[in-house]
Amino acid sequence: MQSETKSRVDQLTAPSGHPVTVLRFEGDIASTSKDAVLGAFQALPKETTKLVLLDFTGVDYINSSGIALVIQLLIEASNSGQKVSCFGLSAHFNKVFTMVGITKYSGLFPTQAEALAAL
């Protein structure tokens, strides 16, 4: 019933010249999305991946279990000295992420360009 979560990885360069890894999600983010969210993040080489953007542009539905996966990702990133920002959330999920306090540990940006410019 839930739309399967897909994720893919892009490598970009921020205007500052820093290499940036973008994890692009598509579908629903729920309890069934562990591999697509955490698994995809854990597969990135920690030594060379210091700046990570999470792209939610293709995501329509995120529930509390999905938000918990994002928080687990932020915990792992924090423990590895990686910086994570999010972009492409709908206005509603931007509000929800802010309500649960994710903004204390991750920037939220409307677009990829704005997220890259902040790095």
Binding site: N63, S64, S65, I67, A68, L69, I71, Q72, L74, I75, S78, V96, M99, V100, G101, I102, K104, Y105
Partner: peptide
């Protein structure tokens, strides 16, 4: 839910459903 406690492993990352409903 307390994001700081979650980030420091002192609280389960889950358990936000009722908070979201109320909010």
């Amino acid at each position: 839910p307390d994001i700081d406690r979650k980030m420091h492993g002192e609280e389960d990352p889950r358990g936000m459903g009722m908070f979201l409903i109320q909010a």
